[in-house]
Nucleic acid binder design. Structure first.
Lengths: 237, 237
DNA sequence: TTGTTTGACTGACTTTTGTCAGTCTTTTTG
DNA sequence: CAAAAAGACTGACAAAAGTCAGTCAAACAA
């Protein structure tokens, strides 16, 4: 399934620009580049499983990966959608625990694997990089607090509106007077992000469509009225 | 309101044993100790406010602090209850952002304040300490993922049962055949942890009491049947 | 001590959300 | 291409949870 690809050196990788590696020193970039392994993945493949031991970190060059946990009721909760430039699996490596979630490709991807030792060595010898990673970790905690608060306090309707806004910010492409979410997600996957039943997502989406705040173009969602969505998501007040 | 106290040196502080500082080198403990400031706080006082700039970190010597966010609907969501040995406010410091939450004393506390510079200097010069902090941050992310999944997928009943179990683990004192949660929380505060309405907490608690899994002793809750609670929280299955 | 405030609690009711069963449509595959 | 499978969707219904209004009890203050 996965095929090893020509290893573009990290020095030349376009997605590095906005990643944790953006300010890494030249020699370290070379070290990482030397040990890394670029692999091509198809939709549906699993990058790693919850509960297994991390052997390194992943850096996404292209494609989209969903990171999710499986709840005790069998349903899954999507924690995060990772795209080009994002790193995966460093939490588990740094906490010295097994993976706390599962990562699955949802849009064909090219992903580099950086073995544990090379990553940690660079981390501990390059303080600016270490600081950068720590900053990212701390930031993520704030993001998770926000998600937790929303999940506990907002209605499904508000949460769906908010998720659509976020998706349009992360995966949006500009049209005239609107914004298309350039990512194919099943209704079930949207439900797994929001944390609700698939049927609820379907009903709410058609409601949003009827109200003219969104439009469907094939499998993709177009945001027609971001301000309206923001109001529905209780972004103000 | 707050009164400055005799500064017990960190070297002698009992709560250091289990804190992030547990493996700090002797000279660094001295540096921290020299710059820190021990302050006594009464229930209801606010340690810091969401949205303000962090000037240092807090280390709890005794007492309990609730860390919470205020949602757009005005209700608050308790993220964490911090007790002796816990650190507060380092996320914001490390992410170089304003506080993402508010911290309020809920049980009279003595808390040391370590100024930004002293903390950061120690962090960046002592790699083992830095690693320890990073490990804690990464671990917390896993915990938050778990909380998010529970909040999105479990029923209020399951979540309340789970919260009671957690509280008994963190604040529990052993009795014969039972375990008392040695912390006074209002129903409203419990609701803010679970993320529900106060009335729902009241109703469910009396239901749990009727079923014999808990008992009330004054303002405190006693867990009579932890296994039963675990089953109710859908801990297995 | 008594009036006042606050928190705990209850019941009736509404709204939200989930579940189930089934149809229709699209995609996949033999 | 046809059959099968998966996904999108709908309606009816049930269950969960929130809201509102009000009582009761405890803590607090004058």
């Amino acid at each position: 399934m996965s095929s090893k690809f020509s290893n573009t050196p990290c020095e030349l990788c376009a997605s590095r620009k906005h990643s944790l590696f953006s300010e890494l020193s030249a020699p370290s970039v070379c070290t990482i580049s030397e040990f890394k392994n670029s692999i091509s993945h198809k939709k549906g493949q699993i990058l790693y499983y919850e509960g297994t031991r991390p052997l390194g970190v992943f850096c996404i060059k292209s494609g989209v990966v969903k990171v999710y946990k499986t709840a005790s009721n069998g349903k899954s909760q999507i924690i995060h959608l990772a795209k080009a430039g994002d790193f995966l699996g460093y939490h588990a490596l740094l906490s010295e625990e097994n993976y706390s979630n599962t990562a699955t490709i949802i849009e064909d991807a090219t992903i580099c694997f950086i073995p544990r030792e090379a990553f940690l060595k660079t981390l501990f010898t390059e303080t600016p990089f270490f600081k950068r990673v720590t900053k990212a970790l701390s930031h993520e905690i704030g993001v998770m607090e926000e998600k937790l608060t929303d999940a506990s306090q907002k209605s499904i309707r508000e949460r769906l509106a908010f998720v659509l806004l976020q998706l349009s910010q992360t995966f949006g492409v500009e049209g005239d007077e609107n914004r298309k979410i350039d990512l194919i997600l099943s209704r079930e996957e949207i439900a797994s992000i929001v944390g609700t039943a698939t049927e609820s997502v379907i009903r709410l989406l058609s409601e949003f469509k009827k109200d003219g705040v969104i439009k469907l173009e094939g499998k993709k969602i177009i945001i027609m009225d971001p301000k309206g969505l923001a109001r529905m998501s209780d972004f103000y007040a």
